[in-house]
Design a binder for these strands. Sequence first.
DNA 1: CTTGCTATGTTATAGTATTCCATATACGGG
DNA 2: CCCGTATATGGAATACTATAACATAGCAAG
Lengths: 161, 161
Amino acid sequence: MESVGMTAHDHGSCKAERLAAAHGFCDAHRLHFTAVRRRVFEILLDEHKALGAYDILARLKAEGFGSQPPVAYRTLDFLVKHGFVHRIERLNAYVACVHPCETHDPAFMICRLCNTVAETSALPSRGMLGPAAREAGFEIEQTVVEAIGVCPSCRAEGVAG
Amino acid sequence: MESVGMTAHDHGSCKAERLAAAHGFCDAHRLHFTAVRRRVFEILLDEHKALGAYDILARLKAEGFGSQPPVAYRTLDFLVKHGFVHRIERLNAYVACVHPCETHDPAFMICRLCNTVAETSALPSRGMLGPAAREAGFEIEQTVVEAIGVCPSCRAEGVAG
DNA sequence: CTTGCTATGTTATAGTATTCCATATACGGG
DNA sequence: CCCGTATATGGAATACTATAACATAGCAAG
């Protein structure tokens, strides 16, 4: 099982590829990959960390984009809706998706010390909830799977509490 | 797999038992099961729905308890900390736990139409995240597992969208 | 070029949560 | 029993997160 975010990888090409993929996806689906949208995606791609809407808004403001909350929320909504970005419920924050253009049920590992977020797949977990859901007659439409803990580098630093 | 909340059960005794269990747990652990704490727990026990902190605060206020946000948040923190209540991240809301006094990794099925929340166990899901976490060197301390969908009664009413 | 859709920008407000300080109540040691 | 400490409650003020509603601008198709 692959889990991008806490393992070593060529981040430069990682970022470039996903930017290109998003651009391609938008072209293919007649979506506008506009300046703000591109910029927000880039900001999120820069780190495997979750950023709050207001963090992003601050950066946009500093770069001459609109400065009011809807600017950030609308842009994030667009990116989330099309699968470029995921919302982390536990943090009220957002991370770039590591598998753009593929629909999936993401699961996250969140470091409570450095906010790094690694993404992996939750399909197995939906598989586990499946039986309980079937028994109860509940129809699953979406899953939120987030593990909170300590990432390898923070653990190595012995910062843990 | 048992999943309380969307299946028929004797709710009166369900509530009484859990109240008694909480009281017993507090006695045993030298914790104060005070009036506000008891009342908030009762309010949450009344329904298998998630209530926001401000919903609860409104009821407390109407009953003569304090009326400021910390009253609700402190009480909820206490109840969550000791496992009587769970926070539903997706809803910024709280539900009474169906297995008081047992430590576990809960998972929830949330009806997006009527807000009913059913609780089941997430241990299998941690089991699934386990391999990914081990591979990444991530130490899981807590998991958030929430399925969003439509509950049996809403589905029966054909209200679904 | 005009009509209509999508996107951007802004104001105002709603909803969620915490920090800090003051008062009160419970509990153990003397 | 009284005092000192820890815990619990009440409240003011503020911070953080999110949305509604409306106005303007850009762009594409007829």
